[in-house]
């Protein structure tokens, strides 16, 4: 029973979604099943959030109580969770500081603490790209040298000054890079990967629907 019910649920849900793709949602009383399933996912996700909060508090508080190394960072995490979540859950009618509207504590923390930190993390990506590119473009062998030459040409073509430099050799050189490198090799390889990935995803879905693949629910 413990194994049959999840398998049956996966089978019927998967089958319903596949079959519904071929029926007009306005003409069947079940309507748009995909939309309904998405709504269910949101509801289940909302309830499951309690699990997440429980996990984050349990793991971090245990380290704070044990006074593990760098325990104060764990304490900061727990305090941040409470400070961010609690005022947002209280009704706005009690105080304009509560809720998640303009002028609330939640909104202020989101605008002036959370967002800048996220943007900082994202901005750091530029430096990470530089260090990864330095390693990737070292001309160690023939393939790496080809990669280096191609990357240099594409980088030059992408910036106006580089494009002007390329045009010194031939007016059509930037167009050739676009045509052969970007729309030729690049697109064909990407499409090959996408077709393979789509087939792999479809095969995996089929294995799940038919109950052949069960590892995702902790069963072999």
């Amino acid at each position: 029973m413990k194994r049959t019910v999840p398998l049956l649920t996966a089978f019927l849900s998967g089958l319903a979604l596949v079959v519904s793709f071929f029926f007009n949602p306005d003409r069947i009383f079940l309507g748009d099943i995909q939309e309904v399933v998405l709504q269910w996912m949101t509801i289940i996700g909302g309830f499951a959030l309690v699990l997440g909060v429980h996990s984050i508090i349990k793991v971090n508080m245990a380290k704070v109580i044990r006074k593990d190394s760098e325990w104060f960072y764990k304490l900061a995490t727990v305090v941040s969770v409470i400070v961010m979540a609690l005022p947002a859950m209280l009704p706005n009618s009690w105080s304009p500081l509560f809720g998640n509207g303009q002028g609330s504590i939640y909104n202020w923390l989101f605008e002036y603490v959370d967002s800048p930190m996220m943007e900082t993390m994202f901005a750091m990506l530029a430096f990470y790209i530089a260090s990864a590119a330095y390693r990737a473009f070292r001309a160690r062998n023939t393939e790496a040298t080809l990669l280096l030459i191609t990357a240099t040409l594409v980088m030059l073509w992408r910036v106006p000054m580089g494009e002007a430099f390329l045009r010194l050799f031939s007016d059509k050189l930037p167009d050739y890079i676009n045509m052969f490198v970007m729309n030729g090799f690049n697109v064909s390889v990407q499409r090959g990967i996408i077709i393979g990935a789509a087939l792999g995803g479809a095969a995996m879905s089929l294995r799940i629907i038919l109950g052949i693949e069960r590892t995702y629910m902790g069963k072999n």
Binding site: G45, A48, T215, Y216
Partner: peptide, 11 residues
């Protein structure tokens, strides 16, 4: 995601 958490814990 919490649902992924629950699935991973089970697995």
């Amino acid at each position: 995601y919490p649902v992924v958490l629950a699935a991973c814990q089970e697995v």
